[in-house]
C-alpha cells in the first residue's frame, strides 16, 4: 500500500552543509556511478555525445547567488537529492504501489517492477527529487544508497551513501535524525539546520546547514567603486601609526 507509515523507527537522512560545499559535483558523479550499476535499472543518458545531451540524475548541484544592496554577493553551492520526507506526497499519489516509505528507517523507495511510469509522483514532489528514466520508463530517485548502508560485503567505512563517501569537502553527513544524539541531529541543532520549502508541509528529513556569515568587506557600503577612488580614512589609527600619520601629514 502506498499509505505512509504512522512513524518510522529511524529517520535516516542527510545533513548538507551549504557552508562547506565547494560545488565540485563529485557527489553527482559518484551517485550516478553507484546507482547506474547497482540497485534497479541503470540511469540512462540520452544523446550523450550529441548536441542536446540529457540524462537521469538522482542528485544535482545548483549554484545560487544571494545579494543584498549593501553587501557583496554570496555564492552558495546547493546539492539537492531526495529529502526522504516524513509526509512524502510522492508516495500517496502512486496508483500502483511502486512508491513506498520504509517503516524501519524512513527511506522512500520505488519498486521498479511495479512502476508504470505515469510520472505523477514527480509532479507531487516540490523538490524535483524524482526523475523518469527515459530508456526504462520507470521513476528513479535517491535510495539513500540502501544497497551500501546495510551492505556487509563492503568495508565498514563505505557503508554510507555514495555522495557522502565521496565528498572531498565533507559537506554531506549521513545519519539518523530520530536519534537526538546522532551526528546529524547534533550538527543540525548546532548550525540551525533547516528544511526546504517547509510551507509545502512535506516534513523533510534532510536538513540544510546554512552558510556561515561572511566578514563584511564592503567598507563604506559602495560596491563596485575602486577603493582608491573613495579616499583614505586614517582616523582609527592609534599609537605609533597615529604619530606617523600626523608626522607625514606635516611634511
Amino acid at each position: 500500500m502506498t499509505s505512509l507509515p504512522q512513524s518510522t523507527q529511524k529517520k535516516l537522512g542527510l545533513a548538507i552543509d551549504l557552508d562547506t560545499c565547494v560545488g565540485c559535483h563529485a557527489c553527482v558523479i559518484s551517485c550516478k556511478e553507484w546507482n547506474t550499476s547497482n540497485y534497479g535499472s541503470p540511469l540512462s543518458d540520452m544523446d550523450a555525445y550529441g548536441a542536446e545531451p540529457s540524462g537521469t540524475f538522482l542528485n544535482r548541484i545548483h549554484t545560487y547567488e544571494a545579494k543584498t544592496l549593501e553587501r557583496a554577493a554570496q555564492v552558495v553551492h546547493f546539492p539537492k537529492s531526495c529529502l526522504h520526507c516524513e509526509d512524502a506526497p510522492c508516495v500517496t499519489v502512486c496508483p500502483t504501489g511502486a512508491s513506498y516509505k520504509r517503516s524501519e528507517d524512513g527511506i522512500v523507495l520505488v519498486n521498479e517492477d511495479d512502476c508504470m511510469g505515469c510520472g505523477l509522483c514527480a509532479w507531487a514532489c516540490p523538490y524535483g527529487a524524482r526523475e523518469m528514466d527515459v530508456a526504462e520508463g520507470v521513476m528513479k530517485k535517491c535510495t539513500l544508497c540502501v544497497d551500501r548502508i546495510y551492505n556487509e560485503n563492503i568495508p565498514e567505512e563505505d557503508r554510507v551513501p555514495s555522495c557522502v563517501r565521496t565528498c572531498p569537502a565533507g559537506a554531506r553527513h549521513f545519519g539518523d535524525f530520530a536519534d537526538p544524539d546522532s551526528n546529524v541531529s547534533i550538527l543540525s541543532a548546532e548550525r540551525g539546520g533547516f528544511a526546504l520549502m517547509a510551507e509545502q508541509g512535506t516534513n523533510p528529513v534532510n536538513r540544510y546547514l546554512p552558510p556561515r556569515p561572511k566578514a563584511d568587506i564592503s567598507g563604506s557600503g559602495q560596491i563596485g567603486v575602486p577603493a582608491t577612488a573613495l579616499g583614505e580614512e586614517t582616523g582609527g589609527a592609534k599609537g605609533f601609526l597615529s604619530w606617523l600619520d600626523k608626522a607625514l601629514e606635516k611634511i
Binding site: 551549504l18 545548483h62 549554484t63 545560487y64 547567488e65 544571494a66 545579494k67 543584498t68 553587501r71 554577493a73 554570496q74 555564492v75 552558495v76 546547493f78 516540490p126 533547516f194 528544511a195 526546504l196 520549502m197 517547509a198 510551507e199 540544510y208 546554512p210 552558510p211
Partner: peptide
C-alpha cells in the same frame, strides 16, 4: 523559501 537562503539577500540561480 525553496533554497532557504532568503536571509542572505535576493537569490538567483547563478
Amino acid at each position: 523559501t525553496a533554497t532557504g537562503l532568503g536571509n542572505l539577500g535576493r537569490v538567483r540561480l547563478l
